[in-house]
Amino acid sequence: MNIALLYALFAVISTAANIGSQDIAVRAYTGFGSIPFSVVVGTGIGLIVKYVLDKQWIFQFKANNAKHDASTFVLYTIMGLVTTVIFWGFEFGFNHVFHTKEGRYVGAVIGLAIGYITKYHLDKKFVFPSSQRIGQE
């Protein structure tokens, strides 16, 4: 399958995991700060799902050991901080403008789409350089 299509599919899966877990979190906790709490939960779940899919199917990455995998995940997360600012900016911006969960989720989807495109390029260059890919040592 074409890498771009596969990456787009994984972005959709990760977005669904993110938004779905946000919805579960905001239903489970409705008190003070429930929206930021749900966004953090969704971001974490989406990050883990995307990392597992990307490392195997997009970048064909195989860690040497658990420590190598953990350090790669930390770098992956750091690259994600840049794109999280984009994603959260859209989500909270749409929430501020529309004051509905649907508006907030639309903002989240737009922000995630822009963020995932940016993240692919950051990950390709900094997290999964070709020297770390399977069979390329």
Results as ranks from 00 to 15, higher is better:
1 M>C: 04
1 M>A: 14
2 N>F: 08
4 A>G: 01
4 A>P: 00
5 L>G: 13
8 A>F: 10
8 A>N: 12
9 L>G: 08
10 F>L: 06
11 A>E: 05
14 S>T: 08
15 T>V: 14
17 A>M: 07
18 N>M: 12
19 I>H: 08
20 G>N: 07
23 D>F: 11
23 D>E: 07
23 D>S: 08
25 A>P: 09
25 A>N: 13
26 V>K: 14
27 R>S: 12
27 R>W: 15
30 T>Y: 00
31 G>A: 07
32 F>Y: 13
32 F>T: 15
36 P>S: 02
37 F>Y: 10
37 F>A: 11
37 F>L: 10
39 V>N: 03
40 V>H: 02
44 G>C: 09
45 I>A: 09
46 G>Q: 04
46 G>W: 07
47 L>Y: 03
48 I>A: 03
49 V>F: 01
51 Y>M: 02
52 V>M: 08
52 V>A: 06
53 L>C: 02
54 D>Q: 08
55 K>Y: 01
56 Q>A: 05
57 W>D: 06
58 I>K: 02
59 F>S: 00
59 F>P: 00
59 F>I: 04
59 F>L: 03
60 Q>H: 09
60 Q>V: 07
63 A>S: 12
63 A>H: 13
64 N>Y: 02
64 N>V: 09
65 N>E: 09
69 D>H: 06
72 T>C: 01
75 L>G: 00
76 Y>R: 06
77 T>Y: 12
78 I>Y: 11
79 M>R: 10
80 G>I: 07
83 T>L: 08
84 T>M: 10
85 V>N: 02
87 F>V: 10
87 F>E: 15
87 F>T: 15
87 F>K: 13
89 G>A: 08
90 F>P: 09
91 E>N: 09
91 E>D: 06
93 G>E: 04
93 G>I: 08
94 F>D: 09
94 F>A: 14
94 F>W: 11
95 N>W: 09
97 V>Y: 13
98 F>L: 14
98 F>D: 01
101 K>Y: 15
101 K>I: 04
102 E>Q: 07
107 G>P: 08
107 G>D: 10
109 V>I: 12
110 I>C: 14
111 G>F: 07
111 G>L: 05
112 L>I: 14
114 I>S: 08
115 G>D: 01
118 T>A: 12
118 T>D: 06
121 H>T: 01
124 K>N: 07
127 V>H: 02
128 F>A: 01
130 S>R: 07
130 S>A: 14
130 S>Q: 14
130 S>M: 03
131 S>F: 15
132 Q>A: 12
132 Q>L: 10
132 Q>I: 06
132 Q>S: 13
135 G>P: 03
136 Q>R: 09
136 Q>N: 15
137 E>V: 13
